[in-house]
């Protein structure tokens, strides 16, 4: 029997498919009997999904860099 604490420790390995068979079975058994841990697992997955919102391509397209920065970079190249 897993405790809720052990269940939480194993989540990432479970999602990555890294848990050995016996632990994976114990993990799945815990899912069947412990609704709060199911909520925890779901919200852990949601945390990863919501992180994607911060990626480029998810939000508005990035603005152009300030002209002063572009000029400084091009000047740095000319200096070599």
């Amino acid at each position: 029997m897993l405790t809720c604490r052990e269940f939480a420790d194993f989540i990432m390995a479970y999602l990555d498919g890294d848990l050995p068979e016996a632990q994976r079975e114990a993990f799945q058994e815990h899912i069947g009997i412990c609704p709060p841990c199911v909520h925890y697992l779901d919200s852990y997955k949601e945390t990863i999904r919501l992180g994607c919102l911060c990626r480029d391509g998810e939000g508005p397209p990035p603005e152009d860099a300030p002209e002063a920065l572009v000029e400084a970079i091009l000047a740095a190249r000319r200096k070599g």
Partner: peptide, 22 residues
């Protein structure tokens, strides 16, 4: 081994819009 605070379900999209979530 039980949590101090019992986890409950989330509803991100019902509570907040995309910009707020971001």
């Amino acid at each position: 081994g039980h949590p101090e605070a019992t986890p409950g379900p989330w509803s991100p999209e019902r509570l907040l819009d995309r910009d707020q979530l971001r």
